[in-house]
Amino acid sequence: PDSPLARWTKSLHSLLGDQDGARLFRVFLERERCADALDFWFACNGFRQMDLKDGKTLRVAKAIYKRYVEADGVVGRRLKPATKTFIRDNVKRQQIDSAMFDQAQTEIQTSMEENAYQTFLQSDIYLEYV
């Protein structure tokens, strides 16, 4: 009952907390050409754990902004304009905060929960694994 597979269907969060689950979901998203959404989600978690005193943190914030938020990709297109502006202003003013990507991460997570996660649970990739 509490097998990894049972947990995968419980929630997106449970799926992403499992190594095999996260890997398989990424394979699925790559095929759907939206793996960036998952990479961004993990990048937000990694960023939140970074030490703000570390000089790397500003560079990582800039890299996340450039690669996912500003770019016309799957993440940039799904974020609300106000959310993108908020992050852009933070990066420009070098006002780095552990929670600066939280809202954006929530928006992408909701989008994955409503779309990709549901499709994944019905995909051949998932069913073959099961």
């Binding site: 990894p4 499992d18 993990f42 990048a43 937000c44 990694g46 754990q49 560079r59 990582v60």
Partner: peptide, 20 residues
């Protein structure tokens, strides 16, 4: 100095689940 891509990859990897 690490490249931007390396930093980003390191950040993503640090958040990936490690064990089953």
């Amino acid at each position: 100095i690490d490249s931007e891509d390396d930093l980003l990859q390191e950040c993503i990897s640090s958040a990936m689940p490690k064990k089953k």
